[in-house]
Each structure stands twice: as C-alpha cells, then as structure tokens.
C-alpha cells in the first residue's frame, strides 16, 4: 500500500500512542519492538476488532480489559516447535552439556519461552544426558496465556510426528514418545519433565535480572526487538550470566552488533552459541 510520507508519519505516531497507552495502562512495554512487523500486527488487530483505526482500538483496549487480553495474544508471534533447528540441540548436547556437567548446579533461563516447546525439548535433552536433576529451569514470557499453555504442556497430536523427526535429528537417544502421553487430539508432556521448571511472567523490556544463570536461551525473540531494546536485553543477559555462562540465540540472530559483543566469544558460530568471557 503506497502511502505518502506524511501518512507514514501519522501512522507511526498513532502506533507510538498505541504502544504508549498499553504501557501506561497495563505495564507491557512494546514500544521498542521492531516497528515493521509490529505495525502489521497492530493493523491486523484493528481489522479483527472492527475498529476504525488504531486510536479507536486503543480506546477499546483502555476501557475493556478483555479486549486487551485478546489483543495481547496477537501482539506476539508464537511460532515454535519442539527441537526446532535440531542441529542446535545436537550441538548443545555434544558441546555445551559436557561443560555443564562440570557445574554442581545449573540454572537455565528460557527467555521468551512462548508455549514451552523449547523448554520441554531442553528438559528431554537434559534428562537424557542425566543432567536434569541438577538443573533449575526458568521459563519466562510476557504473555500469561501462553505461559498457562506452556505450564500444561499439551501440544496438538498432528505436530508430534514432526517433533519426533526433529528429536531424532537432534540426537535423541530414545524416542520422543517416551516423554509424552497421547490421547484425543493432544499429547501431554510427562510431569517429571515439569518438575524443575518455574514458569514466570517476565517482560524483557521492563524487568530486571532475577538470578545468576549458567545458560540463557533466547531464540527468535530478539528479532522482534529494535536495536536499542536488543542492547538492553543483551545487557540484561550479560548481567545475569555467570562466568563462563552460555548464551544461545536463534539461527538468524547475532551478537555481533551488540554493545556487549566484547564480553562474549563465539562458542559455536553456526548455531549461535556464545560463551561469556571472564571479563
């Protein structure tokens, strides 16, 4: 859709106001998310609610919490699968786990865990490597609904075949079915996998460090943030990470342009695993 620059600016202004309104009313800070995709989604929301424009949607949001709840669900994209990018998990298993085994206890933080596929994948991996009992896992996301789903650990049965493929490619020792129960249209992950997981609501844009981690995974979350927010998040991670801690990013993400780049060295370049330097 062709717009002249004046319209674009007005659009941006509307979006700014929209995001500011959400932040002030509900405390969710989307102001520094990557603008282009956020815009698309917001416009999508406008259509979905039949509002005339972004401002009228904002009006609805401010006065009707249910509308906000509904909108919130669509503000973040939750595309995820178990053992997504199986090579990453394979690399993690083969290279990172041996290092982790030398720690007496391991704290792992999945930042932006969405519906939890990644978290459960990691738990399966850790269980198979005999590391699970030593681990305390924090799974955080900004969206409470999504956290609820993650807590349940129920995934659609159609996806399981694909997940199993991924699991095998990621070097799984057994079969994924060992870890879930299937019935009706869903599979539910074993509760033994949930034992050491803490699900919590945490906003990377506004919240602070809450503990010392040995591993932080933040995959395909940062792509939604603008450069400034990315830096903030990186700094947060750098502060949270222990010496010799690991930071894992998504396959299309990179630390190279971050301010804190110097604090890390590439542990595995292809899979975007970084190792925090002593400094």
């Amino acid at each position: 859709m062709l717009q002249n620059t004046d319209d674009c600016r007005s659009d941006d202004l509307e979006i700014d106001l929209f995001l500011e309104g959400i932040y002030r009313k509900y405390g969710y800070d989307f102001r520094q998310y990557s603008r282009a995709s956020l815009k698309r989604r917001i416009f999508g929301q406008v259509d979905r609610f039949g509002a005339d424009n972004v401002c009228s949607l904002l009006h609805k949001i401010l006065y009707d919490q249910q509308v906000f709840v509904s909108v919130l669900e669509y503000m973040t994209i939750n595309v995820t699968e178990m053992f997504r990018d199986p090579l990453f998990y394979k690399t993690f298993r083969e290279k990172v786990v041996p290092v982790l085994k030398s720690f007496p206890s391991v704290k792992i933080w999945h930042a932006g865990c969405s519906t939890g596929e990644e978290v459960y994948s990691m738990c399966v991996l850790l269980k198979e490597e005999g590391l699970y009992d030593r681990c305390q896992i924090y799974a955080t996301d900004i969206d409470k609904n999504v956290l609820e789903k993650a807590k349940k650990g129920i995934f659609p049965v159609e996806s399981v075949k694909h997940y199993s493929d991924n699991y095998n490619k990621a070097g799984g020792h057994f079969t994924l079915s060992k870890y879930y129960t299937a019935r009706y249209d869903g599979v539910i992950m074993d509760s033994s996998l949930k034992k050491n997981i803490v699900f919590a609501d945490h906003d990377l844009a506004t919240d602070q460090v809450f503990g010392e981690m040995q591993v932080i995974l933040c995959r395909n979350v940062l792509i939604y943030f603008n450069r400034g927010l990315q830096n903030r998040v990186f700094n947060l991670f750098t502060e949270s990470l222990d010496h010799h801690g690991f930071l894992c990013l998504g396959s299309k993400e990179s630390l190279r342009f971050a301010e804190c780049n110097d604090s890390y060295e590439e542990f595995d370049r292809a899979q975007k695993v970084y190792h925090k330097n002593i400094s």
Binding site: I154, R183, Y184, D201
Partner: peptide, 29 residues
C-alpha cells in the same frame, strides 16, 4: 491425570469460545 488433561484440552478446543478463566482481570502488570 495426563489423559484427563488431554481430554479437557480437546474439549476446550472444540468450543469456539475460549475459556474465560485464564484471562483473569489483567490489571497493570
């Protein structure tokens, strides 16, 4: 319990109206 959970989940999916409970009143974070 797991199976019961899956059952309820399936139940919830059939119904187009999303269950209201999880969307409790969202005040400021």
């Amino acid at each position: 319990l797991n199976e019961a959970s899956l059952f309820l989940h399936w139940l919830g999916n059939r119904d187009t109206e999303a269950p209201v409970k999880s969307l409790e009143a969202i005040d400021h974070r």
